[in-house]
Design a protein around this nucleic acid. Sequence first.
DNA 1: CTTAATGTTCCCCA
DNA 2: TTGGGGAACATTAA
Length: 256
Amino acid sequence: MPELPEVETVVRTVAPRLRGRRLLEVRCFTKKAWAGSVVKAAGQTVRDVRRYGKYILLDLDRGLLAIHLGMTGKLLTGAAKGPYTRAVLVCDGAAVCFEDVRQFGSVRWLAGEPGGLGPDALAITSEEFLQRLGKKQARLKALLLNQSFIRGVGNIYADESLFRAGLHPLALAARLSKPRALRLHGAIVEVLSEAVAKGGSSISDYVDADGQPGWFQLEHRVYQRTGEPCLACGSPIRRILVAQRSTHYCPRCQRR
DNA sequence: CTTAATGTTCCCCA
DNA sequence: TTGGGGAACATTAA
């Protein structure tokens, strides 16, 4: 569920429930290592709720809570504790459950801003994108997935952005012409913006904090469309593995 | 029974 | 130093 558009949508829906409220306590129902750190959030007021790449950040009086949804994480308001509830943020008057079937997600207290990630995929300028891209020998698909390069893009939006830019996922970044690199930047911003506007992609069971699904999955042109005809040229969509992840592309629209 | 799934991290090798 | 491949983490669904 969680790439930039989904996380952005969760932030927008959960923020009104948490902003300005005091966290009476944070309860954890997991033996994951992160569970130990969240006690420091107890008693603090949530000053702001914002997105940082794929993280949901709650600014507290001291430090912050960094929530990562992993593959199957959800934040749900007004939900009862279930078998996959890994943590509950208890506020006066409201509770937010962190559900996570596969347990790749986390909730941890940080003393300060998380670092080490590249510029946000929706905020990076074309100039900076070009400059960073030109230094990399990596394949485009691998680069887009690398949060140190730009933060926020995951497997769905990497494939959709490359299709929209007409670029092969295995193309080498440093060898892209300037016009093609600019096209890629534009495609990323377009795809992510449209996905945010549609509330993200609900491909398995993603829902926002109010339990509402997104609709951008209806706009996917290559992701999980293996063998289906390209909506632009009719060629069967191909699936390969890049950086250990399923990668979908049109062999005719996205030449090497 | 096998495979794949929206993610990240760590180890090994070239 | 950089990048690729593979494994690990944990669980469900087809």
